[in-house]
Structure formats: structure tokens, C-alpha cells
């Protein structure tokens, strides 16, 4: 696979989301797209409405947990879907600064399959691979 991208992986009851990138920020962007793709086709989102997100955690993988849960919360509480992300992750200070672009969910146009209940700690991994790429993944409960 190319150095940047996302995929879904198998979990018995639910679904795993995984992102790859040249930087941790890119991997966080890709895994967020993978999570959006559980609900809708990210390509169908008119990404005109920006949302700013800043987070800090004690561990890098908990930063991923918080990042995806932040998106789940905004999707649920504000009725939004996202199609584009720009994420900077500072590995040393375990901080994230992000912009997510999206729009209000329109069920007829976006045809959402399922809502995400929460992000789990199952298969929660953020790490640098042997080939230099960054991997960010976990299982989401739907």
C-alpha cells in the first residue's frame, strides 16, 4: 500500500479502523477518514465547515482515543459529518492540533449506515513501522 491511506480491519461484532501516514499527524488524519467511512462515504461530504480541535494526553495512544472520541462527540451532538482533516501531532508533548472540515448530516444525501457509539481501547495502537511510516488504529463500537 502507499505511504498514506486508510483501511478497515476485522472485529467480530464491530469494525476496526486503521490509518497510515508519513507523520503521526497524517496517520491520525487517515484513521479519522477510516472512521468516517464506517458511517458515510467521506467523498460525499462537502467539507466547507471547519471545526478546530486541540487535545493533550498522557500517552500517544490515548491521544488517538481522545481524537476519535472528540469526532464521535461532535458528530453526535452537532449532527455533523466530516470529509477532510488536517492534523498536527507533537509526539514529544503528546499534543494534537487539528482542523476537521465537514457539514451537517443530511440522511438522504449521505445515506449513513450506522452511528458510532464509542471508540474502544481494543487494538488501540499508535506506532512507527519498520519502513518509517506511522500507524494509528483501534476498534470502534457501532
Amino acid at each position: 500500500m502507499s505511504s498514506v491511506g486508510w483501511e478497515h480491519f476485522h472485529h467480530d461484532a464491530d469494525i476496526g479502523v486503521r490509518g497510515y501516514g508519513k507523520t503521526p499527524g497524517e496517520a491520525f488524519e487517515q484513521v479519522a477518514l477510516a472512521m468516517m467511512a464506517v458511517v458515510i462515504n467521506p467523498g460525499d461530504v462537502r467539507a466547507y465547515c471547519p471545526v478546530d480541535i486541540s487535545l493533550r494526553a498522557s500517552e500517544l495512544d490515548m491521544l488517538l482515543f481522545d481524537w476519535l472520541n472528540e469526532l464521535v462527540f461532535i458528530m453526535a451532538a452537532r449532527g455533523m459529518v466530516f470529509g477532510r482533516f488536517d492534523v498536527q501531532v507533537d509526539v514529544a508533548s503528546i499534543q494534537l492540533t487539528a482542523k476537521a472540515w465537514g457539514e451537517p448530516l443530511q440522511p438522504e444525501r449521505h445515506a449513513p449506515a450506522v452511528e458510532i457509539k464509542g471508540v474502544t481501547l481494543t487494538e488501540l495502537v499508535v506506532r512507527r513501522l519498520a519502513d518509517g511510516r506511522w500507524l494509528a488504529q483501534c476498534v470502534v463500537d457501532v
Binding site: M62, N69, V72, F73, A76, G118, V119, T120, L121, D141
Partner: peptide, 29 residues
């Protein structure tokens, strides 16, 4: 959504506090 968020909030809190309570968990989940 209420139940989902309670689950998320407390999963996080319990995972972060497990060490402080002296709990040896074979799986963080």
C-alpha cells in the same frame, strides 16, 4: 447517546486510574 458517552467517559477514567488502584490488568480494555 447518553449511555455511549457514559461508557466512553468511564472507560477512559478507569483505564487511566487502574495503576493508581494497584490493578494489574492483562488487557487495558
Amino acid at each position: 447517546g447518553l449511555g455511549h458517552q457514559i461508557g466512553t467517559d468511564y472507560l477512559r477514567r478507569m483505564a487511566l486510574e487502574a495503576g493508581r488502584h494497584g490493578l494489574q490488568l492483562p488487557d487495558r480494555e
